[in-house]
Design a protein around this nucleic acid. Structure first.
Length: 278
DNA sequence: CTAGGATCCTGTCAGC
DNA sequence: TGCTGACAGGATCCTA
């Protein structure tokens, strides 16, 4: 679930709570959620590679965290900081039955919750992080990628629907289901369009749109976070304020008033305006 | 190599 | 109320 903007928001938020703090113990409640042997050490920093976070320790080890669909990181100390898949876990009593791993710091606890168990924390030597199979294959993020590079990649997969291809992190890194729909809408491209039928000019539009939707989300603290940490425990609905098509089926298109439709593309729920996207 | 579909897992919701 | 199937903000694996 969490896409690049949410993961980046968690990274920035967590820095304040765990950098220079010592990780002193690990409790693994679900075996498949923790790969490798638990490690200890003081936190030097937190890096992000696409949708994955890497917590570097002064012991020479690192923890790679991937939230996949339903992962959450919830730091609980003097105050609580939560991010990831939106749910009541952000404000409820922890640990609970979705808690998979507990990282114990000297003055707080970091819970890794994950309803569907697709996510994981992986311990490895810091020197091996960049050779990790997942990280090594990641493509550039939209801000670093040039339009002709993306265009060439799209042409290499000319028979596939463009949405499925831009969700592939080895093609372009960072987009997930929300921002793919939003970027395609902004660029006026139908998600079922074959990659071979996307022009260089449209690729440029798509790239700009991807940057814009994610920039906007990062600067507001991610689509699912910020509002969730409010003291009164109310659920945030930032997505509703910012999404033009995502989860807006049945509502009018913000550009033309036509009804937003929900279809299925590349196995994923997909939101479109049939008049604005061809 | 590409393209499409199944799969990992738990929970929720719509429909009967 | 209980059952069933569909679906979910991700990525990989398998098959053709």
């Amino acid at each position: 679930m969490p896409e690049l903007p949410e993961v980046e928001t968690i990274r920035r938020g967590l820095l304040k709570y765990i950098v220079k703090k010592k990780l002193v113990g690990t409790e693994v409640l679900c075996e498949k959620s923790f790969i490798g042997e638990p490690v200890c050490g003081k936190v030097l920093g937190i890096r992000r590679f696409g949708k994955a976070l890497v917590i570097d320790l002064d012991s020479g080890f690192s923890l790679m965290v991937h939230l996949r669909m339903t992962g959450q990181l919830i730091y609980d100390g003097k105050e609580r900081y939560a991010g990831g898949h939106p749910s009541d876990n952000f404000v409820s009593e922890l640990p609970n039955k979705q808690t998979r791993v507990i990282l114990k710091f000297e003055d707080g606890v970091l819970y890794f919750n994950d309803q569907r168990k697709f996510g994981f924390i992986k311990a490895m030597p810091t020197s091996e992080v960049e050779q990790d199979g997942f990280i090594r294959k990641l493509a550039k993020e939209p801000w670093e990628m040039k339009a002709d590079e993306l265009y060439e990649k799209l042409q290499r997969r000319k028979g596939s629907c463009v949405k499925g291809v831009i969700l592939d992190q080895t093609v372009i890194c960072g987009l997930g289901n929300i921002y793919a729909d939003e970027a395609l809408f902004m660029a006026g491209i139908h998600p079922e369009r074959k990659c071979g039928k996307v022009s260089l000019a449209e690729t440029e539009q798509l790239l700009m749109a991807a940057r814009e939707v994610m920039d906007r989300s990062i600067s507001s603290g991610g689509s699912t976070m910020a509002t969730y940490v409010k003291a009164d425990g109310t659920k945030g609905d930032y997505l509703e304020l910012f999404a033009q098509v995502f989860h807006r089926e049945g509502q009018p298109c913000v550009k033309c008033g036509n009804e937003i439709k929900k279809i299925r593309v590349a196995g994923r729920g997909t939101h479109i305006c049939e008049r604005c996207q061809k």
